[in-house]
Amino acid sequence: MLDPRGPRFAATITTVVFILVLAFSSAWLALAQAVVFALTAFTRYGPYTLLYRRFVAPRLGPPGELEAPQPVRFAQIVGLIFAILCFLGYLLGAPILGMIAAGFALAAAFLNAAFGFCLGCEVYLLLRRTLNRPPSTDVHQ
């Protein structure tokens, strides 16, 4: 279980990072953020999470409620995909792709930071609905 303020803190930093990525069209900053997403999703050593635990959490009280880790991991993996697309876009001379990917990542991070927006709640079911069609029994050929 997680302190839900940790991911909000991380999303705030992520928001700033993607504003900088867009402002400087920086492939390498996007790559750095991709590494952060990967570390946060797959290990216990997400850099922003460590910052939160070391410097922020001790100044706040204990959390009022705890959050399941799956929604956070899902959001980090979605962020990772957009960060990689963004990196590749800028690196390979397709800045439009870079901007679109950074724009989506910025929207998701900002909505999480400012509103506690739950990306998994919005897209996971839609994806499952779309990708997981039952085997059709009434195909007319």
Partner: peptide, 11 residues
């Protein structure tokens, strides 16, 4: 209706 990736579902 809930899903695994959903903190508001718990609330």
């Amino acid at each position: 209706f809930s899903s695994a990736f959903c903190a508001p579902c718990r609330a």
